[in-house]
Amino acid sequence: MKKLINRQAGPVGRWALGLLPFVILAVLYLVASDARLDANPNDKLLPSLSSFSDAIERMAFEPSKRSGEYTLLVDTLASLQRLGIGVAISALIGLVVGIATGSLPLFRAGISPLVTGMSLVPPLAILPILFIIFGLGELAKVMLIIIGITPFLIRDLQQRAEEIPTEQIIKMQTLGANTWQIITRLVWPQIMPRLLSSVRLSLGSAWLFLIAAEAIAATEGLGYRIFLVRRYLAMDVILPYVAWITFLAFAIDFALKRYSQWRYPWFHGAQ
């Protein structure tokens, strides 16, 4: 028999091994939930499957009695819009500043210390300031995401721009390129796939800041809903919402990865 370190799972085995922990967790949950509901039918901590499906039915597929809208849909759209705007603006700032500081030494000397300093400020600590300056509206929530992830994106992209081999920058000059052309034809196209992977890395923090901002001041949104129903210990709503957020995060990550592989084959082929 081969050493353990050399043994690989086959295609079927890999799926089975991957699913196994999920199945175990689900079974454990059902057993624990049954036991608690047996002892106290009104227990709220570990709801049964039927109360989950009731809650999902109510939140996702029936118009809300108060507003006539589908709650889950409204929450999802509101959150995705904030996340999308926040991440898009951060990516744009990260791209522009990262390319400038990564490829132009004079910019780097001027801007890098500021960015480094800003990246050390804990974003949640200045959330109150944001609410004071921008009010409780959409802007403050988007700003929190931007402030939270932009310094990381700038620094990551600056590093990626600096990693472009000097040989290629020299090569461009021997082909007659000026500084602007070196940026538009060499640095920018090579940074784009790296931007996508930095954005994928920063999405976790972006969700964190979004949910934190929504928990404090919002009238709809996935984070708002979770913190709202927490008051009634409504685990039957909270857990499906968490699962839904997880699924959204996974789907966005997967889509970005696939897009990058399709759009930048040279980047993924050379790795």
């Binding site: 081999p165 040989e167 290629q168 020299i170 090569k171 461009m172 000059q173 021997t174 082909l175 007659g176 060499l186 196209p189 090579q190 930048y264 040279w266 980047f267 050379a270």
Partner: peptide, 19 residues
């Protein structure tokens, strides 16, 4: 004292643009 189009170069590697 900076590279320009009068002098072309081929390095041992990284000479062509991967993208």
């Amino acid at each position: 004292d900076e590279p320009d189009e009068t002098r072309g170069i081929v390095f041992q590697r990284y000479s062509v643009l991967p993208h």
